[in-house]
Amino acid sequence: MNNNPLSNLEHLIKKDYSNTAGIVIRKDGHLIYEKYFDGYSKDDVLHVASVTKSIISVLIGIAIDKEFIKNIEQKVLEYFPNYQVRRGEKTIQNVTLKNLMNMTAPYKYKSEPYTKIYSSDDWVKATLDLLGGKSRIGEFKYSTVGTQILSGVLTNATGQSIIEFANENLFKPLEIKTPHNAFIENKEAYFAFLKDKYVTGWVADPKGVNTAGWGLTLTPHDMAKIGQLYLNEGLWNGHQILSTTWVQESTKEQSRWGELPYGYLWWIIDDCYAALGDGGNVIFINPTKNMIVTIASRFMPRAKDRIELIQKHIIPLFT
């Protein structure tokens, strides 16, 4: 360690957050720092894991703005008119889009059945089959597989694939390169997507429906653009990409996991909010300081908490 605070920060990252691939920081609308590690460059995309959920929140907001979706109080099954509800199943009929968005929908499993879902031919239907059960609506239950239902809602509501809708309404306006479909056909391919150093695309099921809970690849700059869009309350280069109302509603407390507030697929942290992905992927937005910190990371089980890194080391250094 030396007297250069920036060198000390980068030393800390290499030592304690060794799976970090890239960091981008924007303040007052300007890029003030970017750094890449472990052989990655600014053009390399990484699997951002559950940050994908927050991107889906953006797309749901756009779909509501464009009136493809009426509102999030709608019942989920309104978007699946051909789905056959099993005899005696009542709970599923009352689950709303809001329940999926704020993680208060009930499911019939104790631990998430990733392999069962991702080895099926239709991931949305496989997840719908797990919705409901004996748990009550309104209890917080974080679910990655459950979010997949929102992919079905988006495709059925808009008549477009997730990638087509995202490209037209979000990626193209923000100059984010459109990902291709990355098909996962077996368990080996699933683990390869999680663990390989260089992966690209957006994971899709055999029907071509993209994932909602994980599976999107982005660069740190792409992530920072999403953060800037939210910091600008939906405005981008003079165009309202997303309504201010949705930005505000999706990033205020809608439910709570213990002491941690949750919005619509965004985490609320004090007076800030964040998209958080396993392994240390983060879009962290601090409206008070007009600042965005994005971190993209390789997959690593039990990766050290990036929020602590951001709050204790990054924000004090750059403000």
Rank of each mutant, 00 (worst) to 15 (best):
M223G: 06
I13M: 04
L100Q: 11
W266D: 02
V45N: 14
P261D: 12
P173G: 09
T251M: 00
P220Q: 03
Y36C: 06
T91Y: 12
A296T: 12
I137D: 09
I295W: 05
G258S: 08
I137A: 06
N94K: 15
P5D: 10
P106A: 13
G227D: 06
K172C: 02
P173A: 07
K53Q: 04
N281C: 08
I163C: 07
G88Y: 11
S243L: 03
L9T: 05
I13C: 09
H47G: 10
Q148D: 04
E249S: 13
M291F: 02
G132M: 05
T96G: 09
T91W: 07
D196Q: 14
I60T: 05
G213R: 00
N232L: 08
V209L: 08
I72A: 15
S54Q: 10
M300I: 13
L128Q: 11
K172T: 14
T211E: 02
T155C: 05
V153R: 01
V247Q: 00
G238H: 08
F284E: 03
H313T: 08
I25L: 14
K195Y: 02
Y79C: 10
G133Y: 00
G280E: 07
A275D: 08
I241F: 10
K195D: 11
K15Q: 15
K110S: 11
S7D: 06
F193P: 02
P179C: 14
M101Q: 12
A126K: 05
G201I: 04
K53F: 06
A63F: 00
R86H: 15
K252G: 04
L174K: 03
W123C: 01
I163R: 06
E249G: 01
D65H: 04
